[in-house]
């Protein structure tokens, strides 16, 4: 079983890679950060007896993805699973962030995912079932002021995943869209979760569990996975309440949280 993981050197990507290696899957890992990618490749190779390839790539660069695929073809690899984990977020108000940084959110989260998914689907193992995981977010469920571009980019992925899944029915393939709340992927995210107080803890999911269930549910053919009962409740509420209300509510809450966390010096 061959699995490709993008964003494999990040918190969630690493946890996915560990779980896949534990299950005995052969891995092809990619990430923009070459030294970090080498670290996880070596770390896994020391622990598990599975084949682990790694190749750095900037997924926002089309030529880079072509080169990545050329390397895959050179190795003669065909895949059974694709985990689209690579994604970024820059917190803060629209005008408080640099223009190109905001644009990059869409370039990686959406365009990058499209590029890789399109290319890897053409390199699926023709004789076996194929699974794709797209990482959306709880943020995709609402318009989110102060995370506007990020939340919208995740909404794109949610709809894309659902639609692609339909297109692939009858081709022995499934697309699972993962919509996690908080995950303790790195120190920065942990700080953000803490700044949200009780709400942060409530929406935070145990990463090791999410990882295992995501893989299991993807193989079982599930379309969407929202970890945590509280998050599922938020999802239902989000559907019932008008978008302008949720946007206003979220804006109030995030203004408080981000004051505490992003701009602590501004607190009198």
């Amino acid at each position: 079983m061959n699995v490709m993981i993008t964003g494999a050197a990040g918190g969630l990507g690493r946890a996915m890679a560990v779980e896949c290696a534990r299950r005995g899957y052969a891995l092809f890992l990619t990430n923009i950060d070459a030294p970090a990618l080498a670290a996880i490749q070596k770390g896994l190779s020391r622990r598990f007896c599975v084949k682990i390839y790694a190749e750095p790539c900037d997924l926002t660069d089309s030529a880079g993805v072509d080169a990545l695929m050329a390397e895959i073809d050179r190795l003669g690899l065909r895949f059974d699973m694709l985990l689209n984990i690579a994604g970024i977020d820059y917190e803060g108000g629209f005008l408080r962030r640099e223009r190109e940084k905001i644009v990059r959110i869409v370039a990686l989260n959406d365009e990058g995912t499209l590029r890789v998914t399109h290319a890897v689907l053409q390199r699926r193992n023709p004789d076996a079932r194929f699974c794709i995981v797209v990482v959306s977010s709880l943020a995709a469920l609402f318009p989110m002021p102060l995370k506007a571009a990020y939340a919208a980019s995740k909404r794109f992925l949610m709809d894309f995943g659902m639609a692609l899944r339909q297109e692939l029915t009858g081709q022995d393939a499934n697309v699972l869209t993962l919509c996690p709340g908080g995950l303790s992927t790195n120190d920065e995210v942990c700080a953000a979760i803490l700044a949200q107080g009780v709400a942060g803890s409530l929406t935070t999911n145990a990463m090791e569990r999410v990882v295992r269930k995501t893989l299991d549910l993807a193989w079982k053919g599930r379309a969407r996975y929202i970890p945590g009962a509280f998050n599922r409740l938020l999802f239902l509420l989000g559907k019932a309440v008008p978008a302008s209300w949720t946007a206003a509510l979220i804006f109030r809450r995030w203004t408080q949280t981000q004051k505490k966390w992003l701009y602590p010096t501004q607190i009198p």
């Binding site: 050197a9 690493r14 560990v18 670290a39 770390g43 896994l44 622990r47 303790s184 935070t204 090791e208």
Partner: peptide, 11 residues
């Protein structure tokens, strides 16, 4: 730590 988290090499 409060949560499961891994190092660069996945530990």
């Amino acid at each position: 730590k409060s949560w499961y988290a891994t190092t660069e090499d996945g530990l």
